[in-house]
């Protein structure tokens, strides 16, 4: 149902690093890690707060919540460590001519 929507320029996100963007009125955190781009809902499933200020661990492929340290898998959104136990929503990203496009997960 949803299309790829332009969200950011590749050059805006250092590796490793994150960028908070708004895609169709949803807040999405774009992650650049080990040469790849990922997109997750900017929501920690533990306390519902934002993830976008958290540190990226490129080797483990995770983004950690800045408040209580719950780690989320960049590829799937899965919760890897306590205190989170549920995945955060993960979205598809593609890079074309320096522009990052996000396709929102329907859920």
């Amino acid at each position: 149902m949803s299309a790829y929507i332009p969200a950011a320029q590749e050059s805006e996100i250092p590796d490793p690093g994150t960028l908070l963007v708004e895609v169709a009125e949803r807040l999405i955190v774009l992650i650049h890690a080990a040469g790849h781009f990922y997109a997750l809902d900017d929501v920690c499933t533990h306390d519902g707060g934002p993830l976008s200020d958290g540190p990226v661990a490129a080797e483990q492929g995770t983004l950690a919540c800045p408040r209580h340290g719950a780690q989320f898998d960049l590829k799937t959104g899965a919760a890897k460590t306590m205190p989170a136990t549920k995945a955060t929503t993960c979205h598809e990203v593609k890079l074309e001519n320096g522009t990052l496009f996000v396709r929102l997960n329907a859920e």
Partner: peptide, 13 residues
């Protein structure tokens, strides 16, 4: 969201 009163209500959009 750093304010306790707004921690559950995200008005960044």
């Amino acid at each position: 969201s750093r304010d306790e009163e707004w921690a559950r209500t995200d008005i960044r959009p």
